[in-house]
Write a protein that binds this DNA or RNA. Structure first.
Lengths: 156, 156
DNA sequence: GTGGATGCAAAAATTTTGCAATATA
DNA sequence: TATATTGCAAAATTTTTGCATCCAC
C-alpha cells in the first residue's frame, strides 16, 4: 500500500513541481501534526528542527503550493494569522471547526452536515457552491464537563 | 421612532464609553455602507471624507469597541485583511456569506439555516454554540446568468 | 477638572518579493 | 544543463502601542 506522503509526492509531480527536500520536510511536518492547526511560523519552526537551513519564505511558498494542489486548506480563525489544515484524503468537503472561547482549543467535525443547507443556497440564491468554511464559536466538551463537575462539587 | 444610530449611541453609553465625534462618524459610515464588507482601511478612508482629522488608529480602536459591543462582527475572507460587518438589529445569529470566485462579489444570506446542524453539533460534540461563521465559495447568480446567456449565444 | 479618547509616529507582526546561488529532473 | 527552487534580506501590509494632548462628561 502506498503511503500518504507518496501520494502527495506524486501529486506534486503530476503538476510538474519538483520534489525538493524542503517540500518533503514541510509535508512531513503537516502529516505529523494533522490534528493541529499550524500557522506558517509554526510549520517553519517544526521544519527547522529537521532541516535547519530552511527559510521562512520557502515555507510560505510551499504552503501556497499545497493550498493550490488542495492538499491543505488555508483557514483563518480571526487571530491575525493564516493556518494550514491538511485536507482529509478523499474528503469531498472541507471539515468544520469548533473553537472554544474558554480554552482556545480547536476541534474538528468531519461529518458534512451541510448538504441540506447547500441545496437551499444553490436553489434559492442560484449560487454554485465549490467550497465552504464553517466554524462554531462556543464552549467545548472538556470545559463543559469541568463546569458540570464544579457545579456538582459546589452543591455538596 | 428611535433611529438606528441613536440606539447604537445608547449602547455605547450603557457600556460607559464616551460618545466622540470620531465614533459617531465611524458608526455612520458603517450604516451608510451596510451592504459592503469594509476593511479598517476602507472605513478610515470613508470617515476621513467627513472628519479629515481622524487617525487610522482611532478607527481600529473604534471597530474593536463596536465588535465588543456586538454592533459589528469582525470577519475574515482570507485575503489578508479583517472586515467589519454590521450585525442586523435583533438578529439572533450572524448571517452567512457567499463569495464569488469569478467576480469577487460577496453576497449575504440572512436566513439562519443552521438550526438543525447546530442541534447535532451541540448534542453529539457536547459543544455549547455561542456564535458561528459560515461562508460559501462558488459562482454567484450574476456570473451564472451571464454564462447561461453566453451558452445560449454560442448555440445559435 | 479628570479620566478616557485621540492623533501621530514608531513598532510589531505577518506575508511577499527581488535576486544571486543552488539543485532537481 | 536548463530551469525551477531556495535562502536571505528587504519591502510591503496590516495592526498595535506609547505618549503627549485634548475633550466629553
Amino acid at each position: 500500500m502506498e503511503s500518504r506522503i507518496e501520494r502527495i509526492k506524486k501529486q506534486l509531480h503530476s503538476a510538474s513541481y519538483k520534489l525538493t527536500p524542503q517540500r518533503e520536510a514541510t509535508v512531513r511536518v503537516l502529516l505529523e501534526n494533522e490534528a493541529d492547526h499550524l500557522s506558517a511560523e509554526d510549520v517553519y519552526l517544526l521544519v527547522k528542527e529537521k532541516a535547519p537551513e530552511i527559510g521562512l519564505a520557502t515555507v510560505y511558498r510551499t504552503l501556497e503550493l499545497l493550498t493550490e494542489l488542495k492538499v491543505v486548506d488555508k483557514i483563518n480563525f480571526g487571530d491575525g494569522v493564516s493556518r494550514y489544515d491538511l485536507r482529509k484524503e478523499g474528503a469531498a468537503h472541507f471539515h468544520h471547526h469548533l473553537i472554544c472561547l474558554e480554552c482556545g482549543t480547536v476541534d474538528e467535525v468531519q461529518e458534512d452536515l451541510l448538504e441540506d443547507v447547500e441545496d437551499i443556497v444553490e436553489r434559492d440564491y442560484n449560487f454554485k457552491i465549490k467550497d465552504h468554511r464553517l466554524t462554531f464559536h462556543g464552549i467545548c466538551h472538556r470545559c463543559n464537563e469541568r463546569k458540570d463537575q464544579d457545579d456538582a462539587a459546589n452543591k455538596k
